[in-house]
Amino acid sequence: MAEPVLQISNLVKSFGALRATDDVTIDLHPGEIHALIGPNGAGKSTLIHQICGTHAPNSGTIRFMGEDITHLGVAARARKGLGRTFQISSIAPEFSALRNVMLAVQARQGSSFRFFRPVRSDASLTGPAMTALERVGLAGRASLPVAELSHGERRQLEIAIALALGSRAFLLDEPMAGMGPEGSRALTSFLADLKQEAPILLVEHDMDAVFALADRISVLVYGKIIATGTVEEIRRDPAVRTAYLGDHD
């Protein structure tokens, strides 16, 4: 198998006596969707925070595209192509959808210290931004302020931003949250295409979506990965059934 895009090894993060991340090893291969599931409080968010750089782990390493990024800041990781969406949509609320995406294009070009040329008429920003909005089906809403977009549309916008960043891997934190059934279905088929472009680490509560999309699933319980495997393996795993799926099936 090809070298993993993202390789997390023996990651530990403690808050006082609580080991929120307990020796976690997980990787992401090219072209796959790797879903991370687990009950509330299992430490999924803490893990995502460490991967994107907002929290520093106590020990362990995070390698991205063959490079150790354990000690890089959030902005530096994003520039390397680690695209993240947020559990709580928190885009620049006063900007239009288009300007939000334009900002990602600008960041990707690495050029925030240009002081003269107006951005509004800059086709090198508006062009790629519109393309990204078209891909997620939001082109018709480009000029609306984010505050006027629906919840589902904001999730789509998040993905457009991650696309515009030219991400080499996506960290999607509950992209289906707050979406109606129709929106979820549309997003599911979109993500199935998206993984060809860059692999996806998907944190999601919607089990239908996880089972439909994931190539592999890892189950996190009390900070530990208790199982990693294909959808079938995870469905059959007795430990997983007791710890997590038991309540549902």
Binding site: G73, A75, A76, S112, F113, V119, R120
Partner: peptide, 30 residues
């Protein structure tokens, strides 16, 4: 001029949402 430029956009998003600016790769400090 500054407000309309790329720098102005970056500054505006840093003001609106610093976490977000970092998440798209814009380091807020400089």
């Amino acid at each position: 001029v500054l407000r309309g430029s790329r720098f102005g956009s970056a500054l505006d998003v840093v003001r609106q949402n610093e976490v977000r600016a970092a998440a798209v790769g814009i380091n807020p400090f400089p």
